[in-house]
Design a protein around this nucleic acid. Sequence first.
DNA 1: CATGAATGAGTATTCATTCAT
DNA 2: CATGAATGAATACTCATTCAT
Lengths: 209, 209, 209, 209
Amino acid sequence: MTKPLARAKARTKKPKSLRKGPDRRRQIIAAASELFARNGFEGTSIRDIAAASGVLSGSLYYHFPSKEDLLFTVHQESLTAMRQEVETAIAGISEPWKRLDEAIVAHCRILLGGSVTRAILTPPRYYNLKGVRKLVRQRDEYEQIFASLIDDLPLRADCDRHVFRLSILGAMNWTVFWYAAGGRLSVDDVGRQIALMVRGATSGATTKR
Amino acid sequence: MTKPLARAKARTKKPKSLRKGPDRRRQIIAAASELFARNGFEGTSIRDIAAASGVLSGSLYYHFPSKEDLLFTVHQESLTAMRQEVETAIAGISEPWKRLDEAIVAHCRILLGGSVTRAILTPPRYYNLKGVRKLVRQRDEYEQIFASLIDDLPLRADCDRHVFRLSILGAMNWTVFWYAAGGRLSVDDVGRQIALMVRGATSGATTKR
Amino acid sequence: MTKPLARAKARTKKPKSLRKGPDRRRQIIAAASELFARNGFEGTSIRDIAAASGVLSGSLYYHFPSKEDLLFTVHQESLTAMRQEVETAIAGISEPWKRLDEAIVAHCRILLGGSVTRAILTPPRYYNLKGVRKLVRQRDEYEQIFASLIDDLPLRADCDRHVFRLSILGAMNWTVFWYAAGGRLSVDDVGRQIALMVRGATSGATTKR
Amino acid sequence: MTKPLARAKARTKKPKSLRKGPDRRRQIIAAASELFARNGFEGTSIRDIAAASGVLSGSLYYHFPSKEDLLFTVHQESLTAMRQEVETAIAGISEPWKRLDEAIVAHCRILLGGSVTRAILTPPRYYNLKGVRKLVRQRDEYEQIFASLIDDLPLRADCDRHVFRLSILGAMNWTVFWYAAGGRLSVDDVGRQIALMVRGATSGATTKR
DNA sequence: CATGAATGAGTATTCATTCAT
DNA sequence: CATGAATGAATACTCATTCAT
């Protein structure tokens, strides 16, 4: 049932130095990000990436030992970008709920806004890769930001903070599957609405539609 | 170079038991559900499904004309099962919030409980199929249950009911990617917690962890 | 490179008696004729034939031990029908050229008119069958009619009667690939024109278009 | 159930000689020509062609995007070659019948002589391809040569030039199914005989065999 | 560093054939 | 006699990966 993808043998050559083209490497990562985001990992071929990088498929293997490895890199870089965005967003704020609000908006913004990251965090369970663990670890690390934001929240005693966090992440990440740019809502609107729901949509004046 | 087409080898072992009729169809659907859920559509090969159904790959085509068609069937059946579960759960209840609570619990229960349905509702956007439209229509129809439950809710005027619904669905469907049976939480616990979050986790006595 | 199609093992059961359904057998042959003619041997599946005979695929094997064998039967019957048509057509005629004329018209008529035979005589060389030899033998036997008609013709000494015969057959059989029913020309027109060409299209009044 | 994808086995034997560049493309076209001619399009597998080109099946797809496309190429090249042969043959001649004679001989010569072209012109009607139209167009274009040669001929008023042309083509193309190299007749003999028949085999001194 | 060509296991699907009922 | 279900080899095509140049 498992698909080991037992590739990527020799992992010898990789020039840590930036002799001439770290550009090329960046181009490849950018292209791969874009394509993985749009078509998924399995739906993107090495040739697609190569073509989008202005290179032939064989050449990719100079830069990355395997497709899987390229995914790890893209994933990592994406998460780093998200972390930065989120941390910047909550930097000056101290009120716990407000901090969560801003983190949510930031997460949605980069998720839906830039192709770099979109959808990369989606179910790594689907990727039948040897290295899913690694992906999961990378992602869990990022999600700790939210864990600690939630820790600071005054919540009902019967509220499971673990589930609370994962539900928020679910609500946010799911947007990738339904949000259509150019529609009625801006990317930030989406984030605001999720933040609203999380706070409890009842409070305040109410309407029954 | 030769294509001998040598058939009819040994026909020894076959357990006489699971050889009936419409059972086979069910077995296949069950196996496919499980595998699509675990590995995604593209990540599941016809051979995988066949093997899991105790059948050879060619035999599947007696029961289903294509892999895509099998997906449609699995998807449809799953949604029908979910609809029933959810409708049963809210049957005798009239208080709007309570109805939503129970719908959420029911949705999570069947999503996480039986392999038949699990995770089928996930992002059809990724499936590179001609018939995605069909899948999406099937799913949208099911989601209308939630749309109407939410319509009955007294919500703040600035709360977008559309996003509200999709966020709840996101939170619920995302559980598929993190929930591990046998852990601290029961399937119903998960549902209750999501219902709690949706109501506004602040209300009531609070703790800061 | 060869595709032996090593099927048709046991050739045991076949009820020479007409217990109940020689009809069924006829139905199958008729359906097969029609389909082989329209779609070619490789382009026709046993299931197609079964469906067209109002039977399930497994049942065919009661009547014919293999698809190949069915082809032999169809081929044989078609040739027999053609022979009859041609022999009838030349029956009362004695003038050699006239006899050939009529044979040509008859051959074309049945070839293009009834689906039973059409195209069956076409290149058995294409069929990668063990039994092509058999087909060829059947066909050669039929073609002897033309050989003897040509023997009776007064031809130029430098005319190779062998090539002459095969060229006529080529011209006639090729019609299958271009003749469209319902067009300007009737089936008999086609035969007449070929007969005309064979006689030497120059003789008589001439035009240069 | 596992899909090990174990690659990179032994890479021992490879004759260093036929490893160049555009040669490979030619080799493939040659092999495909030969095989399509012998076994038909449907009767030839991509693996057959690959094997005959000294290559593995996957490698073909580097050179041609599909089997159908390979057929188009082979077909096109063959027709181009035939056109050249025929046009060269009739170049210096002005007498209309003589021009047709030479065209016929040339057509047969290349049809039966080189494997490149042989039989490719046969009934595309059978090919179950999307692009049959394309093939037919290619072929019709070639056949115009004969149409115009025939236009220049003084023929009986009741002779249909359309059927006349198709019958000649039928007689010529049919040779592919019966001509055996190395027999009594040379390739050119066959062409001469067909030309003779077309002129009217009666004319001149006659014998009755 | 990059290319172009090849590799070969993998994919979904088809289909003649078998056979217990 | 017929059916329904299964078989398994075959088919066209894809794609991550390798490697000599």
